[in-house]
Every structure is written in structure tokens, then in C-alpha cells.
Design a protein around this nucleic acid. Structure first.
Lengths: 332, 332
DNA sequence: TTGTATGCGTTATCAG
DNA sequence: CTGATAACGCATACAA
């Protein structure tokens, strides 16, 4: 069923049908009624491809994510869907499973006219990314990593991490261990570690390499990292760069017959759904993922509409959540 | 940049370029090389809309989900992406936020030729769903709920729930409470409750309405439901229909100065990422969400390709995970 | 093997 | 206000 058929049935021209559908131009009320009636009767829906081919617009945005099945990512996507829906956009999701190669691949796939704009949660941004992006000629918004010349929405990783470290210091801790991830991930690996360094240094606490261990985001890796640290000595506190890794660390501590927070205090970053309900409840910095998703989509919308190249950098704040996984050190 | 331009630059006809791109028909190796070279040089990508308009195929599948930001859903989506990628399909995600209205709306949106097929995780399937689906004329696969005349991939809810109830009974429990959700949700609300009833009845345990409370999937509602139950008496065990609700119940029990599993044993269903690490580790039935997603996508692919109406019902099994949230009742 | 020409379903221009 | 008709970019039947 196409416009031509509707036109025939309603005894008007295809052009008129199109006008009725798009509410454009002038159409006598009478004919408008007739057309609408026919459309209703035959349950007609326009062919989106023909439409997009003609208008050079799809009302679809591409979203590239590292792994949809994580709380962080799925919440961001949730935020994106909310705004995209408001603007009558659909979401094309590309799941890269943390493979940079896939990321580049999808970027290329999206370079055909399928999408009107792209939101990308890249973990690492390479020169190849930039190169492809450069001759992409489509609005792009980065989430989670700041990229020059592109608008990006990021968390305040530095201050959130610093807040955690400072909180531990204020509670009297000096032997503060660090459970992190590879510095290849700028936001989580590099920035948060730097904040840890800075916080300690500013308080005249010497950095002890034996108190630092690196994992790969998983709870299990947090467990393992904590194990490595305990092998070399017992800190009074540990700051993990994600809640998941903090959970792993806590389990490891317990398996070593120590308790949290009595023997060792623990902090995370992120505040996932379970952090508040974990036992002990985790002290952490709450991130606003959904808000990030919303902002990313809002900015993409305005980029698409204004065709302007006005890039901007948005830093979304955090809330410190003080819970029971941290204890004060008693003056001895 | 379009095919015509490539043709001009490579000194061949548009048809030849098309043949090279689609690897169809015969093209002399020499010209093929030339065309490929030009395509490479100018970084040409075909216009998907024109292509789809012509071929009546988009290589896009629509996925309708109730809420992307839950572990269950995002894992299923993860599975879907894996298979869709293998088959060179893209995913158009529609997030309905649990609104049936939105579900119907998206179903309509997808009825234009945008997608080649649909996977839908419906919570409730109404007559309206069926009506729309009926004149949709596109392959559809249901996930999570069994729908007549359509292929559906479901968990073995009945047996999983029954296994939990039976496990408690075997451990000597007789005062077994039930924390469920509305029966509007067939799989989680109705089927799992029936399993609870049947298990108890088969073991000659009388159903006690005071031991039954209903929530809405959230951890908080599990807490609340447990509170209602405790108000009326103290069971020796409680079976929650989801892990999240089990967590809520456990918190409530602890807040009432009772302990798990010493005073009250608790079971969930699902086995989310945290269930194993919760304290106490939760006894539950592990669901294979990713597998469900994969199966759903595989079946959709075969429906798309074969154009056959061969519907099928797949029931995906579960694994019982015995952990520390359940105790035996001592013979007194 | 290759090229020409047509049509996929819309929108938009232009004449009426 | 309304109706022809020309693109949009591609795949393909048909001719060569």
C-alpha cells in the first residue's frame, strides 16, 4: 500500500495525500478528511526508506556502547531513550563488547546515511577514531571521555575520586590502598588514579606502590587485586575505582578473616543499585548515569537541528554517599 | 558521493559498480580492482535507504524491551546483539518503560518497512497486541511470555519456582512465605505463584494467605512485602520470585533483628550478578538470559530467511544454585 | 562481461 | 488549493 493507492482510493493526487500526511501546504478540509479516512481504513503507514531517501533524514541516532549489559551503560542508554523518544527519534544500538575494532567498524557503518547523529561511549579514543570521525560529517557526542573538538559529557571523575580519598584521610587513614584499572581507560584508569595520588600527596602521605593493584572492572578482579595487596601488608583502608571492584575487595578481605569496616575501610565509585544494600553498605560517590544519557541526547539533538559546530564540554557532578563501609581510625 | 560518481571515476557503468559492491554477476577482475580502488580512495559507503527501498530489506531488527536498565533485560539484549552481529543485522531498540501503550505504539512504528523482524519482551500481551501483530506481516519472536501462534522463548518459570519451593520443603520448612508480583505478569506473577501453590499442596502443606505478599519487582517492594508478612507472624522461610525482591526481604528480616538463614531462610529466582556475592549468598535458580537473547535472535533470523510461519516454543532451563541463604530446620 | 534504463515510495517544485 | 512530475541513490532486467 503506497501513497498512490491512497490517492486513488481517496480520489485525489499523491501530492495531496503527502500534504495531508505531513500537514504541509493547503488542503481543503473536505479532502483532508477523505484522505485520513482512507489511511485509517487501510491501515497505511508510509515507507520510511523512501521518506528518508528523499529527505536525507532518518530520525534515527546511532549509539555505540562498550557493553550493554552493565549497569552503568544501560542506565545511560535509558537516559538517551527518554530524550530521543521526546524528539521522535529511534535508537540504533551498537554493542562493541569492549573491542576497539568493533567501535571503529560501527563508526564506519553509521557513516552511511542511516543515522542523523551518533552518541559514543568510547573507552579509548584512538587516532583512527578521530580520523573516521573527521570525514563523517555527522554530529557526534562523546560520553565518558573528553575528546577535543567534540562535545562530550563526562563525570567529574577527578573530584569524585579525590573526595573518596579525602574522606578516608579525614577519617584518620594513612595506609590507603588503591584498587584500579588500566590507565588505557582515561576516565576510570588514569584520572581516578591521579586523584588518589594527589589527595595523598597533598596530605603529605607517601605513595606506597605495594598498596596499589590493578584489575579489569570485574568484581573478581577486585578480589584478586585486594589479595595481592594483602599479601604485601595490611592497609587500614582501600579505595576502589568502581563499586564492583569494591565488592570484590570486601569479599577478599572477609575471606582473609578480616572485617569491613572494623579492620579495613572500603570505598567505591559509582553507586550502583546494590551498593546501598550491600552488607556493609558501601561508601561511594554516586554518579548520575541517566542524567548523562539525557544530556548527551539533548546535546546531540541540538547539534542535529542547528547544524552548528558549537561543541561543548559538560561535566556532571556526583554525590558523596557516606555509608557503613568506612570507619574512623581511633587515636591510639 | 553516489554510485554514479564512482562509476565515472572508475570509468565504468553504475551497474558494474553495483556488481562489485554486492559481489554479484560477472565483472572482469581488472575493472573490479579499479572500482574498489576508487571506492577506497573516496571513502564511499552506499546509501542504506536507497538500498533498502530497492531491496525491501533493511537488515535491521526491532527490539522492544520493558526497561533497558535492568540486568535481566540488558543481558537478553546482549545475547541478541551477538547473534544479530553475526548475521549482519543492526538493532533498533525501543524502550517502553513498562508502559503497555508504548509497547503498542512501537509495534506500530515498526510496522512501516523499517525493520525486517521484531523481538518483543512484553510483560503483558493484550488483544490489541495480537490485533496489531496480526496485520503486521513481519516475523515476530516473543521473549519471556508464551504467545499462541508466535514463536516464543521462555524460561522454565514453573519448574524453577517449584524447585525453590521444594528445596525449602526438603530442608524441613513448612511455614514458607511467598513474596511475589502482580499476576498481570504471567511469567513472574502467575506461573511462579502457581508453582509455589503446587509444591506446597503436593507436600500436604496448607496454603496460608497470611504468608503471601505482593510487590512490584523492586528491592524496596520486597522489603515492604516482607514487612507485611512479619507483621502477621514469623515464617521459617520465604521464597521471593526475583533475586531483587529476595534482597529486599533479607534486609527487612535483618532490620527486624532476625537473621538469615538462622531465623529465616530466603530464596530468589534469577541469579543476578550480585546474588552470589550478597551476604548471605543467595540460594536461587540461575536463568540464562543471554542464551534466551541468542535463541530469540537465531529464531528470528530463520523466520526472516525462510519466510516460513513455522512457529516454535522454546523453554530454556535453569540451574539451581544452593548457597548460604537457606538453612535446614533441625528436628526439635 | 558490460551498459542502459526503469522503478522502489516519497517529497517538493512548478504550473495550473 | 491541487495535480503532474522530477528527483533521491540504488539494484536489476534486459540488451548488447
Amino acid at each position: 500500500m503506497k501513497i498512490k493507492d491512497i490517492a486513488r482510493l481517496a480520489k485525489v493526487s499523491p501530492a495531496t495525500v503527502s500534504r495531508v500526511i505531513n500537514n504541509s501546504g493547503y488542503v481543503k478540509e473536505e479532502k483532508k478528511k477523505a484522505v485520513k479516512k482512507v489511511i485509517e481504513e487501510v491501515n497505511y503507514t508510509p515507507n520510511e526508506f523512501a521518506k528518508s531517501l528523499k529527505t536525507q533524514k532518518s530520525n534515527i541516532i546511532g549509539v555505540i556502547v562498550p557493553k550493554i549489559s552493565t549497569e552503568t551503560v544501560s542506565r545511560v542508554v535509558d537516559g538517551i531513550t527518554m530524550i530521543s523518544k521526546e524528539n521522535n527519534y529511534q535508537l540504533l544500538i551498537a554493542n562493541t563488547n569492549l573491542q576497539v575494532e568493533e567501535e571503529l567498524n560501527y563508526l564506519k557503518v553509521f557513516s552511511n546515511n542511516l543515522v542523523d547523529g551518533i552518541i559514543i561511549m568510547a573507552t579509548v579514543v584512538t587516532d583512527e577514531h578521530l580520523r573516521i570521525l573527521n570525514n563523517l560529517n555527522k554530529p557526534v557526542v562523546f560520553v565518558g571521555q573528553r575528546v577535543e573538538k567534540y562535545t562530550s559529557i563526562v563525570h567529574d571523575d577527578y573530584n569524585a575520586a579525590k573526595a573518596m580519598a579525602q574522606h578516608l584521610i579525614e577519617k584518620g587513614h594513612e595506609k590507603i590502598a588503591f584498587v584500579g584499572v588500566s590507565e588505557k581507560d582515561v576516565a576510570v584508569g588514569k584520572v581516578r588514579k591521579q586523584a588518589y595520588f594527589d589527595a595523598l600527596t597533598e596530605h603529605n602521605i607517601t605513595i606506597d606502590k605495594n598498596l596499589i593493584a590493578i584489575g579489569d572492572f570485574s568484581l573478581e578482579s577486585g578480589y584478586k587485586a585486594m589479595g595481592e595487596i594483602l599479601q604485601k601488608g595490611q592497609p587500614s583502608a582501600v579505595m576502589a575505582v568502581t563499586d564492583q571492584m569494591a565488592f570484590g575487595a570486601i569479599h577478599c578481605i572477609k575471606d582473609n578473616k578480616l572485617s569491613v569496616p572494623e579492620d579495613i575501610s572500603v570505598t567505591g565509585i559509582g553507586d550502583g543499585k546494590m551498593s546501598k544494600y550491600f552488607i556493609p553498605a558501601l561508601t561511594t560517590a554516586k554518579y548520575h548515569h541517566k542524567k548523562v544519557g539525557k544530556l548527551a541526547c539533548e546535546h546531540l539533538m541540538s547539534l542535529i537541528n542547528s547544524k552548528g559546530k558549537n561543541t561543548s564540554d559538560i561535566v556532571v557532578g556526583y554525590d558523596v554517599k557516606l555509608r557503613s563501609s568506612v570507619n574512623s581510625i581511633r587515636e591510639s
